[in-house]
Simulated scan of single mutants.
Amino acid sequence: MEYIFLFFIGICATTLGTLAGGGGLISLPAMLILGIPVHSAIGANKVSNTISSFSSFYHLLKKKEISLKESCWIIPVSLGGGITGGFIASKLSGEYMFIIALVLLIFAFGTSFIGKGNFTGKEPLKMNKISITGLYGIGIYDGLFGPGQGTLMLYLFDFLNIAYIRAVGLVRLATFSSCFGAAISYIASGKIIWPFTIALLLGSLTGAQIGVRLAEKLKPIVVKVILRFVTAALIIQIAVEQII
């Protein structure tokens, strides 16, 4: 029964995560409720996100919404961030990880009201100080904790004036890269509980395909509202967990 529950959690979490990030808002608390240790729960998310995020990226690549020429440099940057974050996470307590997540999400939520972007931009993704630093930093956060990584990255791509559906594809590639790096660290540390991880993975693969197809139909004007809702929900969730 637990495996069926995790399968459907994977569907819901990855559908949301593809559209606006924040899939960990669903999957991580659900795994903790089942009594799965926090590091094992995060590790399961990293493994499942590695495969599911690549599947949604590949879908958009086939449809030529994004190109490898524009996006391939994301892989080493986010991979390096994920490996770094996974290593740091193994040295930190769960309490410190929650605090870092809360600070970053509050910052992202605040800047969403300052920025004027609305995902209607047509700029290509370029290698510069902002994009490289932003992607590497979010990669560290993804390996360190995870929930809200996709949300933070969508804010970054919105700031860089990139259209929404292309931003979704780029986020999924970056998620694949950072999660792959983090997954290696978690597997090497022996924190993965494989039966739970595989159940979540199968649901995540399904959710990734549902999410990417819904993203193709979303109007950019709706995206900022969804992002703010997801960010606020993440902040509340993490704050409540800290109080409890």
Rank of each mutant, 00 (worst) to 15 (best):
N45W: 04
K69V: 08
P37V: 00
S48V: 01
P37I: 03
G22V: 00
L28T: 06
V77F: 08
G17R: 00
G23E: 04
G23F: 01
V77I: 15
Y58H: 14
T18R: 01
S67T: 14
E65W: 13
E70K: 09
Y96W: 15
L92E: 10
S55H: 11
H39Y: 14
S55V: 13
A30C: 12
K46D: 10
G94I: 12
L32H: 05
S71C: 12
S52I: 00
E70T: 07
G23T: 06
S53Q: 13
G94N: 13
I88C: 03
K64W: 12
S55C: 13
G80C: 04
V77W: 01
E70Q: 13
K62Q: 15
F57R: 03
S27D: 06
E95D: 15
A44F: 03
K46Y: 09
G21I: 02
S56H: 04
S53P: 04
L92I: 12
H39C: 08
T84R: 04
V47R: 00
L92R: 11
H59T: 13
A89F: 09
L32Q: 08
Y96T: 11
W73M: 09
V38Q: 14
K64M: 10
I66L: 13
L28Y: 15
E70R: 09
K46P: 04
L19R: 03
P29V: 03
S93L: 14
M31F: 11
L16P: 04
L25M: 12
A89T: 07
G80P: 04
G17V: 02
L34T: 07
I26T: 02
L34A: 11
V47F: 08
G35N: 08
T84H: 08
F54V: 09
I51N: 08
C72I: 14
I83G: 00
E65K: 14
F54A: 11
I88R: 06
F57C: 03
Y96V: 10
S48H: 09
I51W: 14
P29T: 07
L25I: 07
I36K: 03
P37H: 12
I26S: 00
K62H: 14
V47P: 01
L28Q: 05
G80A: 09
N45S: 15
S40I: 03
I88E: 05
K91D: 14
K62T: 11
S52L: 02
N49R: 11
